[in-house]
C-alpha cells in the first residue's frame, strides 16, 4: 500500500498549489482574524465570507503526536503523526520528520518543510526546530 494522496477540491486547490510552491498559505478571516484550516467556504467561527489566503511563518509546536510501530506505506525513518499548532493558531495533522522520535514531546517547537510525493502533490511536513 502506498501513501494515499489528497485530491484537491475547488476550495483546497490554492492550499495545495501553495504547498507545491513550497510557500504554504492558509485562510485568514478578515472579520474575526481567525486562521482556518482546512480550507473552508465560510469562516467556521463567525461565518464571514471574507477569507484571504495568507502565508504562514512556518513555525509551530506539537499539540500531540504518535509514533506508529509500523507504517502502512514506505517512508524513510519512523512514521510520526502529529497535530501541529501553527504560530498563527490554526492546527493541522502532518508528519514530523525525525530519526529520533523519542526526543519529541508535546510543546516541542517544529518548523515547516515540504515533501514532494507526486508530480501534483507536495505535502507540508514538519521537522524539529
Amino acid at each position: 500500500m502506498s501513501r494515499s494522496l489528497p485530491t484537491p477540491s475547488k476550495i483546497s486547490q490554492p492550499f495545495w498549489d501553495s504547498c507545491k510552491a513550497e510557500h504554504m498559505q492558509i485562510q485568514r478571516c478578515e472579520d474575526c482574524g481567525v486562521y482556518a484550516f482546512y480550507p473552508v467556504y465560510i469562516c467556521p467561527e463567525c461565518a464571514s465570507r471574507k477569507l484571504a489566503w495568507m502565508p504562514v511563518s512556518g513555525k509551530g509546536t506539537i499539540h500531540t503526536f504518535t509514533v506508529a510501530a509500523k507504517s502502512s506505506f514506505e517512508i524513510q525513518g519512523p512514521l510520526v503523526v502529529a497535530l501541529v499548532e501553527l504560530e498563527e493558531g490554526a492546527m493541522m495533522v502532518s508528519n514530523i520528520k525525525t530519526a529520533t522520535p523519542e526526543a519529541l514531546s508535546i510543546g516541542s517547537p517544529v518548523r515547516l518543510t515540504y515533501e514532494e510525493v507526486s508530480d501534483e502533490i507536495t505535502l507540508p511536513m514538519f521537522e524539529p526546530a
Binding site: 494515499s4 489528497p6 485530491t7 506508529a68 507504517s71 506505506f73 503523526v81 495533522v93 510525493v117
Partner: peptide
C-alpha cells in the same frame, strides 16, 4: 478525513 489526515498515515 481523506484529504488532510489520511495522507499523513493516520490510523
Amino acid at each position: 478525513p481523506l484529504e488532510f489526515e489520511v495522507p499523513f498515515g493516520i490510523t
